[in-house]
């Protein structure tokens, strides 16, 4: 029997990183899942919640809970959005409790639910992995993303110095405390550049937008790429840059 999975693309990935969400679809379908994309989905409310707009966050959470009601599993390619749903939804409203228990971050879903670490991927590049704060400390995904990456054929995984340190994104923190955020970003970029990797990957496009935005501004030639896109890449259908 196939697992019916609802893809929670997240507002950021839907709008700015469609390749990531397409990669999730490709990957999960390759692994035998029946993927659906509930069309009414918008935003989980994390930005409002973390910036202190709890009432509006609750409205968005209730909309999200309604949208994803009834699926076996909800998978998000984002540690922070999955963390919002799983850790914080239960405290927001009685109608947002149920979806919390069925929501997974992508690497958790692959390793814990589908029970795979080798997803048949091929990605012949030197890669370093940044464990995003919410994946690491809120969800506790541990080394699951690394186990998935180690099983990718052709991939040269190099350890990121200071990996556990925040990249400085922090949602609206990046705007409200832009100077401090940039100082944190500078150190994260230095760590990435020290590895000599051509690609920095993570399980969250918000952090990758930050790290990648800095790497691009400095013309470092290092690409920030979501874990899903690496895992979706195969020898027959290798990953190609669309921009």
């Amino acid at each position: 029997m196939t697992t019916r999975v609802a893809l929670m693309a997240t507002c950021l990935t839907d709008t700015l990183y469609p390749d990531t969400a397409r990669a999730v679809v490709r990957l999960l379908e390759r692994l035998g899942c029946d993927v659906e994309f509930p069309d009414a989905q918008t935003c989980c409310g994390q930005m409002h919640y973390n910036t202190g707009y709890r009432r509006q966050a609750t409205t968005l959470a209730r909309h999200t809970a309604r949208t994803f009601d009834g699926y076996d599993a909800v998978v998000a390619p984002s540690g922070s959005c999955a963390g919002m749903v799983r850790d914080l939804y239960p405290g927001l409203h009685r109608s947002t409790v149920r979806v919390a228990g069925r929501t997974y971050e992508l690497s958790e879903f692959l390793v814990d639910v589908l029970g795979v670490t080798d997803v048949g991927a091929y990605f012949p590049h030197r890669v370093t992995y940044h464990p995003t704060c919410h994946s690491l400390r809120m969800l506790g995904v541990g080394d699951k993303p690394l186990r998935l990456l180690r099983a990718v054929r052709g991939l040269d995984l190099v350890e990121l110095p200071g990996a556990r340190e925040c990249c400085g994104f922090g949602g609206t923190f990046a705007l409200k405390n832009a100077d401090t955020s940039t100082a944190m970003l500078a150190d994260k970029m230095q760590g990435v550049l020290d590895t000599g990797a051509r690609v920095v990957t993570a399980g969250d496009n918000s952090c990758l937008m930050h790290i990648g935005g800095g790497l691009s501004r400095l013309n470092t030639g290092v690409r920030a790429l979501h874990l899903a896109e690496i895992l979706a890449s195969t020898e027959e259908e290798p990953w190609v840059a669309t921009r």
Binding site: D14, F37, M209
Partner: peptide, 29 residues
């Protein structure tokens, strides 16, 4: 944001638009 970081150009097609184009809409389960 842009004082210190670039922003990726918005894609020609969002994911949800791609999904509707290629898969049709999914109603709620």
């Amino acid at each position: 944001w842009t004082d210190s970081r670039d922003v990726p150009a918005p894609p020609k097609e969002t994911f949800s638009a791609w999904w509707r184009r290629t898969r049709g809409p999914t109603s709620r389960a």
